[in-house]
Every structure is written in C-alpha cells, then in structure tokens.
C-alpha cells in the first residue's frame, strides 16, 4: 500500500526534525533513499536545489517531490499531510498549555527567558542566510574575495528601504528579484 508507506515515512520525517530547515535533510535521506529507494542520490540533491529555489519548508518540498514521483498528485498530497500531522498534534498541545498556564508566574518567567533565545536562534539562522547571499558560503570563515558586490549593493538598498520607508518585506523581495534579472540576465 504505497499511500500508507508515503504517509508513514513523511510522518516520521515531520516528527523527528527539530530545529527546522536542514535538520530534516538526514531524516528525509534515510526514509527516501535508504529505506524505500524512492529516489537516487542525484535526485535527492535535486530536491535540495528545488527547495532552495522555491518557497516553503524543505520537508514539504521533499514530500511533494517524492509523492509526485512515486504516486502522482494523490501521492504528493498524502506525503505532505503525513509530514505536517506531527506538527499539528504537538503544536496544538503546546498552544493549549500556553494559553491555559501563561498567567502563572513560573510560566511567565519561562516565557520571558525564552524571548532572548528566540531572537538568538533567528539571529544565527539569519546570519547563515546573510553569508549565503553575500559570500555564497553558509558558515564562517569567509574571505573577502568571495564577496559578491552586486549582492552587497542589493542588500544595502533593500535594508535602507526597509528601515526608512513604509515598503514591506514582500515588496522588497519582489524588487530584489527583478533587480537580479535586470543585473545578471539583461546586462
């Protein structure tokens, strides 16, 4: 029963990928290449490429890609549902607890303590996005010779627009994409 297998494989991917994003990669690899032989290693690298080029979490991109390949459109829908089911159950449980107990002093302390941690986590993810965009490298160390000056300029202009004008993130992202086409493709 291929649908059940798809559901169960991606259920496990969803359940064990803490930390989001690339944390899911080894799990997907294990389920899709080693356990079920649904994809070759080359196709797996293609999924990573696709997920970098398209919106959405890599786990969802992978479920959809594998599901489509193995069992067409129904396969992609079932694999995706499998992938988000653990999130649904656990997040809803945590949410209930939060709204029930958030006025307790101990929970308040914990929540206040978590805020700097959340900022730090977003900060470290943001740094790797920043390095990828400007140096084409995800981690330190980077060398100045890798610096892509066109990206630096696009980055600086976008940053200024966000801080000084009322344009929102989505407009800025669209504009940077158009700038990319204009600079890299037309000229």
């Amino acid at each position: 029963m291929i649908y059940l297998q798809l559901f169960w494989s991606f259920f496990q991917v969803g359940l064990f990928s803490f930390g989001g994003g690339y944390a899911a990669l080894p799990l997907i690899q294990q389920q899709v290449i080693e356990n079920n032989h649904w994809l070759s290693s080359t196709e797996f690298i293609d999924i990573i490429t696709i997920s970098q080029m398209t919106p959405g979490p890599i786990a969802i991109n992978a479920s959809t890609f594998v599901g489509t390949k193995v069992a067409g459109l129904p396969g992609s829908i079932i694999a995706t549902i499998g992938c988000v089911t653990p999130s649904c159950i656990i997040v809803l449980l945590l949410a209930r607890l939060y709204y029930k107990y958030r006025n307790l002093s101990i929970v308040q302390g914990m929540i206040i303590g978590l805020r700097p941690a959340v900022v730090a986590l977003i900060g470290s993810a943001g740094l790797s996005i920043f390095l990828t965009a400007l140096f084409n490298k995800e981690e330190f160390p980077v060398s100045l010779s890798d610096l892509n000056w066109i990206s630096v300029i696009i980055f600086a202009i976008c940053f200024l627009i966000l801080r000084k004008t009322k344009f929102g993130p989505i407009q800025v992202m669209i504009a940077s994409g158009i700038a990319g086409i204009a600079i890299y493709y037309i000229f």
Binding site: G126, S151, A156, M173, S176
Partner: peptide
C-alpha cells in the same frame, strides 16, 4: 538570475 537577486533581498528582510 531572479533567485540570485532575491537571496540578497531575503537577507535584508531577515537582518
């Protein structure tokens, strides 16, 4: 080309 440009825009949004 589009994706290369958008990378820089995404970085600005998150920073």
């Amino acid at each position: 080309a589009l994706l290369l440009g958008m990378q820089a825009g995404v970085a600005a949004v998150i920073i």
